[in-house]
Nucleic acid binder design. Structure first.
Lengths: 232, 232
DNA sequence: CCATTGACTCGTACGCCGTACGATGCAAAT
DNA sequence: ATTTGCATCGTACGGCGTACGAGTCAATGG
């Protein structure tokens, strides 16, 4: 049946055509390109949220017609995929001697992951529905390579990777949904009052109020890594 | 400004009016109710996915007019909230002496959580965007209570809860996105071939192919609990 | 020099969506 | 007999994603 996404992702050629920008827009925007579309999509997602990204609005911001987008992009899902992956690029730890401090490398990558996703809260809500893009796979690869080099046994490697991965994913996703639900403080407050009746323990521990998320994240991560480390 | 969701969630009264079903449908469906709407929404989500849930389709399945739904339900977001929470109910471990085996209780609840979400794959993708419903909070409360009873220090309690929580959330969310991307095997296979070029380590460890997800889930969880347990 | 090609843009239109509004039916209360 | 209030629903509006086909313009090559 209908071959969805069969190889080429849009109608534009993959080759590098070096056409100068057309004269047609006398003082308009630069010409459309996949990069410009993705960048603007991210802008739109940042300012208006997932539901605020509309092909029409996207075209408006780019100063183009709606259907022009479809030359560079398959469809709206494609835009989501590209925007998500574009936000998850990783350039490695700031300055390292090759592979000495494996633990520092892992922590840096995972904290950067978390920071990237929280900088673009829509990404956490998008991620479960999208395929794994190259930047995501790249991070998994880096994680795998680093742990392997650090001496984690092959038999434990996958469990170790997934444990760390799950931890980070869960932390960002959970955090994202908290941000949403705290949007209007009135409702949150009301939820908390009848919370103390029905959920005394989490009320007492101030589980939902403790806002040192990144500290808790780091502590849990450290704990996880302590267990994962072979010894050193 | 506009008071969204201010207290009462729909126009219907909360009181228990015991009206018998109206005579009007001579051989039709039972009368509408919030419960019937939610149950049908879950059906629809199970069979057609997140994008398959439409107010019109929902009404069709219920044998009612579209706008009738809005008497029982605020809007479509409300339907999502209710469907999600309805799927996350928890009835406790099968048969336990009060609070003896705290570890068994925690494992059971978390594995049930994971199983519930995987039974309804749309739930993982919905969760990041929705507020915390009573069933979610109930599980957090149970987790908190159990860990506290098990002797986890108050200072470590929140980190412990969030670590476990994040792990489970991440596992289900990750798993859900894998299910999506494996939808058509052709694309998956192609992704794997150029995977071995660009991502040699995760290719070698068969990270993406290892399909013993629940085994890995359990192993990682055991590890986490080992670390969390005070001693016993 | 002109015709052809192919990269790129875009106006129109279609079918579907969520839902505001107001009309209706019907049982219970007055 | 009238009023009230729960519940249903038809119509309509504005917005959405995108199929289709016509248009523009630079490069090509005869």
């Amino acid at each position: 049946m209908a071959a969805k996404r069969s190889g080429a992702r849009s109608k534009r050629s993959q080759g590098m055509s070096v056409r100068l920008q057309s004269v047609q827009e006398s003082r308009g925007e630069p010409p459309l390109s996949r990069e410009r579309i993705v960048a603007t999509a991210v802008e739109l997602l940042d300012t208006r949220g997932v539901d605020g990204l509309t092909m029409r609005r996207l075209a408006d911001r780019l100063g183009s017609g709606v259907m022009s987008l479809y030359w560079h992009v398959d469809n709206k899902e494609d835009v989501f995929d590209l925007a998500l992956d574009s936000v998850l690029e990783y350039r490695g730890p700031p300055q390292t001697v090759e592979s000495q401090d494996w633990r520092g490398e892992v922590v840096h990558m995972l904290e950067d992951w978390r920071a990237s996703m929280l900088r673009h809260p829509w990404s956490a809500s998008l991620l479960p529905r999208r395929a794994l893009g190259p930047n995501i796979l790249g991070r998994l690869e880096l994680l795998s390579k680093t742990l392997s080099k650090a001496g984690v046994a092959d038999a434990d490697l996958n469990v170790a990777i997934w444990s760390l991965w799950n931890y980070v994913m869960g932390a960002t996703v959970t955090r994202a949904s908290f941000d949403l639900s705290d949007d209007d403080r009135a409702a949150a407050q009301q939820r908390l009052t009848h919370l103390s009746e029905r959920y005394p323990t989490i009320e007492r521990s101030r589980l939902l109020l403790d806002d040192d998320w990144s500290g808790a994240f780091r502590r849990g991560l450290d704990f996880l890594l302590d267990g994962l480390a072979p010894k050193q």
